[in-house]
Design a binder for these strands. Structure first.
Lengths: 247, 247
DNA sequence: TACGCTCGCAGAACAGTGTTCACTTGTTTC
DNA sequence: GAAACAAGTGAACACTGTTCTGCGAGCGTA
């Protein structure tokens, strides 16, 4: 998939190399990249709970123990999957006039990446503290927030808040997806109808607000709910903006 | 611990009941409450990853299979542990003049409850969607937010945001705690010093903001960081307040 | 008192997990 | 050709959640 050096697979083998290359071509060499690729295939097909080293090995047609030559543990495999989240996912240089849009865009792309693979948010969630892959992002995020004129204390808290919001939101989405899968609901719309019915059937004397607001909670798309939460956080942050150079 | 019907354990047995009660007293009857209690003991001592049905059974001096007479699965056990979070944890009636403080107080108590037991945030996080125990809380939270004059769309999004923030924050705290445990750091202060040193040692040309802000991120207590994040969210919410009855 | 019956728990078992280790096997090098 | 080396195999260990059979004490009834 994303590993390098696969381009020559479709090329015919030169006759004078045939004798040498044939035996080597029978087994594609096992690499960490291929293991991570296979892990994503298993993750998407089986989900996080059924992602086991044995399943990954089976996907590659290889013994389990072979994986441990390239990956120290299942945890390290998760770390490499986590690192994939950040491939080519960059923050722009600070543009103080547009800082809010810059951060929103960053968050949107982050959520999109988390939703690319099933249960990916669960893997990401287990890595919230500062990992080396995350540091450059936090650095640039802070650059943007500082350029906007936010006090340092707020900047320090905001980085965590934004990534926690992204992870938490995508995590919830994963959970609804899984619930949908275990139910008979085939589509997301069908699921929403079921949920809305459930809330409508709640005793209105004990849950007046829930009954009345169920429309809001389930008619909106996840995208617009995500967007609204983002806007709330950014308005809160913006309220801390103070002029930088009172010249 | 919190289960009912344990009050008579310290009472002496009446002599005329002694002959009858003795054999029964040899084995304290196994109940779901006792199983949940034992699960919390194991959780606090061993952590989430080592919390197994066999450990819980051992804690009670009982065979594993005996647990399944009172609890259908490990997942159901988690649900009962999760339900304990909400015992006697209520929201007040709406007081429109104080809505921000009411919500802050709710969030503070929620975080405190999550921190009462090791890794409790991880269990809570797995239950984010609407469970029956949560519904009354969401209902009252919405009542407060609506009384404050927030538009319905914002109210519907805010409930999720606040609980996600609580869970996410406590979850991160759990992770730092675990990292502290696996490191040799005995106290939290010692851990903070280590972290600060790590950030100070970062190449200042590539991470100027991180180096400069490391002081902010690790000198503050978790409580004040939590408080600041809460304030940011509430300022964002408050920006949506609109007059209710333009009379 | 003796019988049988029910119910709560014990023990073993099944299928699955992460991880390790002694072993082949295919390939290269001397 | 023989020796060395790396890579992958298969079996094993110590676990996990869950289920099934069976025992044995307590109860109601004859």
């Amino acid at each position: 998939m994303s590993g390098p050096g696969h381009d020559d697979q479709n090329m015919p083998v030169a006759p004078w190399e045939r004798a040498r290359k044939r035996p080597a071509a029978v087994r594609v060499p096992l690499t960490r990249e291929r293991i991570v690729d296979a892990a994503f295939v298993v993750l998407d097909r089986e989900g996080f709970d059924r992602l086991s080293m044995r399943q990954v090995a089976a996907e590659l047609g290889v013994a389990v123990s072979a994986l441990y030559a390239h990956v120290e543990s299942k945890d390290e495999l998760f770390q490499h999957m986590y690192a994939r989240l950040f491939d080519g996912y960059e923050l722009p240089d600070p543009d103080p006039a547009n800082w809010q849009e810059q951060i929103k865009d960053y968050a949107r792309r982050g959520r999109a990446r988390l939703l690319e693979h099933r249960d990916m948010a669960r893997i990401s969630m287990a890595h919230v503290p500062f990992t080396p892959e995350l540091l450059p992002h936090v650095e640039r995020l802070m650059a943007i927030l500082r350029s906007a004129g936010l006090p340092d204390k707020v900047v320090a808290a905001a980085g965590d808040m934004i990534s926690t919001y992204m992870d938490g939101f995508a995590f919830e989405e994963s959970m609804w997806e899984e619930r949908r899968r275990t139910t008979q609901a085939d589509t997301w719309d069908e699921m929403q109808v079921t949920l809305k019915e459930y809330f409508d059937a709640l005793p209105a004397d004990r849950f007046p607000n829930l009954v009345e607001l169920s429309r809001m909670m389930f008619h909106d798309t996840n995208d617009s709910r995500f967007e609204l939460g983002l806007e709330i956080i950014l308005r809160g942050l913006a309220s801390y903006v103070q002029p930088r150079d009172p010249a």
